[in-house]
């Protein structure tokens, strides 16, 4: 290999429920999709492995319920994994499985290495704090202490996501969905994370606002070289953003490839169905 991945995920496994003798840890044929009808266990992520390389956008597509968001939440430590490993290319954390770190270490990774943008801004923002306060909160978590410096950084970020500065002290709950999403992106970027997770960030936004957010993401990648994992069920979004794409179905990765190859020469039956459905 001529380059090292910045994030390595191996055998990520996440189940909701205890499992029973019939579903045999998700290997059984008796599962309905990824659900065991006998004990009600959901196998949300099954043996998910992938690499994320510096500066790339990795797309993850799949229908709702395919485990995309659960996988993101596991990586961002919002959910505990059932089993699996994840490594970040960092001198302090080299060779350490991030899922096994202490809560404090995980928080530190979130504060310094990761940014996350949720589909619903409610999860990423404090809706009743001022917008600039939201960003300052993340900056403080990342160890910044000088008010002037934080204010300058926050203004810069809000400006770069096209939030008018005269509204920076307003609470995001006063903003439109698109504006909230852009504040959330500004917040996620504030600690200069080398890795950014974007979970269905444009879903539910109207087309022109969606275009705005997509342009912003592309610009961030080009100018800051941040590695991103972009989850979306929308192939048009993936086509525009991602260099490589992973297709998930029922909690497993069933296909991966260059994005244009996935779209023009899909191999698996499910991927073909997905691509042929594209209007």
């Amino acid at each position: 290999m001529y380059e090292k991945p910045i994030l390595k995920v191996r055998h990520l496994h996440k189940q909701f429920g205890k499992g029973c003798t019939q579903c045999q840890e998700g290997h059984s044929e008796s599962l309905q999709k990824n659900y065991c009808p006998k004990c009600g266990t959901v196998y949300a992520c099954r043996d998910v492995s992938f690499d994320l390389f510096p500066g790339e956008i990795l797309g993850i597509v799949g229908e709702s319920g395919s485990g995309k968001s659960t996988m993101m939440q596991c990586l961002y430590f919002d959910e505990a994994v059932t089993s699996g490993e994840a490594y970040v290319n960092d001198s302090d954390l080299m060779g350490k499985n991030m899922f096994e770190l202490s809560a404090q270490q995980k928080r530190s990774i979130r504060n310094h290495k990761y940014g996350m943008v949720y589909q619903n801004p409610v999860h990423g923002l404090k809706m009743d704090f001022s917008s600039i306060g939201n960003i300052a909160e993340k900056l403080i978590a990342a160890g910044k202490r000088y008010v002037n410096e934080m204010e300058a950084t926050s203004k810069n970020l809000l400006d770069s996501v096209h939030i008018p500065l005269f509204r920076m002290k307003e609470e995001p709950q006063n903003f439109s969905g698109g504006m909230q999403q852009r504040v959330q992106i500004a917040k996620a970027l504030s600690n200069n994370p080398p890795i950014l997770f974007l979970d269905e960030v444009t879903t539910g936004l109207d087309l022109s606002v969606q275009a705005n957010v997509l342009d912003l993401i592309k610009k961030i990648q080009r100018e800051l070289g941040i590695s991103m994992v972009v989850v979306s069920h929308d192939l048009a979004v993936i086509r525009m953003l991602a260099d490589r794409t992973v297709v998930m179905l029922n909690g497993s990765i069933i296909e991966e490839g260059l994005t244009d190859q996935i779209l023009e020469d899909p191999q698996r039956a499910y991927t073909q169905q997905l691509v042929y459905s594209l209007i």
Binding site: E56, D243, R244, G257
Partner: peptide
């Protein structure tokens, strides 16, 4: 070639 090599 790997996908990353192709992208390069």
């Amino acid at each position: 070639a790997t996908e990353r090599q192709m992208l390069f």
